[in-house]
């Protein structure tokens, strides 16, 4: 049962938290802007001072002689030109930044292409064999058709590569159990039951066969593992009655064979 009150509380906290980044961005923006404003005001003061000397030389060129003096007379201006140059460089840096920003977005495009490709490739592969499609994928398809029969020898290592991740050890059972908890797939719980049976952990085999059976009553092998585990756990009688009941409604030949084996004492 859902606890709405508690969930609403958690949601409220979540909402509050989700505003933190916005808030911090806002605050830092304000800080940056105020710094920037302060800075530009300061540089304005500088440029007001420097404007006269920088403009002056241009006018000077026309009147060459008389103005030479003021230019030389203001060594301060030369020093003050530097901050102007610094200011000029900054926008250049910004441009560079913009350029840098472009490249990740291109990478993103490339990624998108990459992620779409397999699907379209598939699509083209099939169509390609029937109709004529874009040239590039077709050659690939043709290659594929040729390679397939030839590469039977190469096939073996490839299959092995896939099987690296195949679960074999007891530890891997836990991984499958974790997956089972997620998708509730009886195929997985039955697999776990069988694995435990192989490992002679009959109690666990019994448990997982039972879980499987609760999800789907019609899987023959879950009944078989279930009753086999019962026998192994010393509950032969219960195993027999269970099997008999199951055979009655399912007419399973596998269960019949097992029951005969239990009766005959072949399976114990």
């Amino acid at each position: 049962m859902l606890n709405i009150v508690d969930l609403e509380k958690r949601w409220f906290i979540y909402k509050l938290k989700s505003y933190i980044p916005h808030l911090s961005i806002l605050i830092s923006l304000i800080v940056i802007i105020s710094i920037f404003l302060a800075f530009s005001r300061a540089s304005q003061d500088i440029s007001q001072l420097t404007i006269t000397p920088t403009v002056a030389p241009i006018i000077v060129k026309k009147e060459t002689l008389p103005v030479k003096e003021p230019v030389q007379a203001t060594p301060k201006a030369v020093v003050k030109i530097e901050p102007v140059e610094v200011l000029k460089q900054e926008p250049q840096l910004l441009h560079d930044n913009n350029r840098v920003k472009l490249s990740p977005s291109l990478g993103f495009m490339r990624k998108m292409q990459g992620s779409v490709q397999p699907y379209y490739k598939n699509d083209l592969e099939y169509k390609g064999q029937v109709q004529e499609q874009a040239p590039a994928p077709i050659t690939e398809v043709v290659e594929q058709e040729v390679i397939v029969p030839l590469s039977t020898l190469e096939a073996e290592p490839e299959v092995k590569k896939i099987s690296i991740k195949r679960q074999n050890t007891q530890n891997d059972i836990y991984e499958i159990i974790a997956r089972f908890k997620k998708n509730n797939n009886p195929a997985l719980s039955l697999f776990v039951a069988k694995k435990y049976y192989e490992l002679e952990d009959y109690q666990q085999a019994y448990n997982y066969a039972l879980i499987t059976n609760k999800i789907n009553k019609e899987i023959e092998s879950s009944w078989i593992i279930f009753t086999k585990s019962l026998v192994k756990l010393g509950k032969r009688d219960k195993a027999i009655t269970t099997l008999e009941q199951y055979i009655k409604q399912s007419h399973s030949s596998g269960a019949r064979i097992l029951l005969d084996e239990i009766y005959a004492g072949k399976f114990k």
């Binding site: 397999p118 699907y119 598939n122 592969e125 594929q144 390679i147 397939v148 590469s151 190469e154 096939a155 490839e158 299959v159 590569k161 896939i162 690296i164 991740k165 997956r179």
Partner: peptide, 24 residues
């Protein structure tokens, strides 16, 4: 074949060899 992030690379390698017809 159940594929997790970890197995992604293996699946792709496999994909390239095209011994089987593969569909994702």
């Amino acid at each position: 074949l159940h594929k997790t992030e970890k197995e992604d690379i293996i699946a792709k390698e496999h994909f390239q060899t095209r011994i089987w017809e593969t569909i994702e």
